[in-house]
């Protein structure tokens, strides 16, 4: 088994757990967890865009009022239930983005004809970015783009599409990923009805 498929599998389980989670606190914990995983796999995390996303989706949802009125702006009520709904949706979106980052971080190979086309696409993409840096005169822009595209020959030899080194799985990796999946499922269990009977304070959380 390839290393990249391992991440695909554990990522899929975590996404499943995120979808099934109904509590806001649980969603928050899951989102935090998947962001840490994505960071650990070499992805960047920027706080501000995510906060803007979170706030804008939460506020947008107050259009459909639901539940206790916290305060009113003019005659427009800001309701607790609507904010929680919005926050839930925002967390779902953010966690999906980072789960996807995490799953893609080891560039899984897509098999078949389409996979070949995509490797060709990325080959040209590499050429374009390196060539673009070499062009000194970038104005007028159309001239510069012409220079860039004329400089790239559309005939490539098959060997130049670099096959990324395939990393095979070690037992340790499998154990780590099983741990990730278990943590996600454990959290899901704690917040389920059965878990609420064992730990009553969970039922008090939104």
């Amino acid at each position: 088994m390839k290393y990249s498929s391992l991440r695909l599998i554990s990522g899929a389980f975590i996404i499943l757990a995120i979808i099934l989670s109904e509590s806001l606190v649980l969603r928050f914990l899951m989102t935090f967890y998947i962001i840490v995983l994505a960071l650990n796999s070499g992805r960047k995390f920027r706080l501000l865009p995510n906060i803007i996303l979170f706030i804008s989706i939460s506020l947008a949802n107050t259009i459909t009022p639901y539940g206790l009125v916290l305060f009113s702006i003019g005659s427009y009520p800001i309701t607790l239930g609507a904010l929680i709904n919005g926050a839930n949706k925002a967390l779902l979106l953010i966690s999906f983005i980072y789960a996807s980052h995490y799953m893609m971080s080891s560039r899984p190979q897509i098999p078949g004809k389409l996979g070949h086309l995509i490797s060709m696409q990325f080959y040209y993409f590499d050429r374009l970015t390196t060539k673009w840096r070499q062009i000194e005169k970038k104005t007028p822009i159309i001239g510069a783009i012409d220079q860039l595209l004329l400089g790239i020959e559309t005939e490539i030899d098959e060997d130049s599409i670099k096959q990324t080194e395939i990393k095979y799985v070690k037992t340790k990796d499998v154990l780590i990923h099983i741990l990730h999946i278990s943590i996600a499922l454990l959290l899901l269990f704690i917040f389920s009805d059965m878990g609420k009977n064992i730990l009553p304070f969970i039922a008090q959380l939104p």
Binding site: G11, I15, R43, L93, F96, I97, A99, S100, H101, M103, M104, S105, L114, L117, I118, Q121, F122, F125
Partner: peptide, 19 residues
Amino acid sequence: LLLKVLGQGLISGTIFSYI
């Protein structure tokens, strides 16, 4: 078109999210 959408999803890492 297909390559554009897939490529965007791959490079921004959002291929499995509903973006």
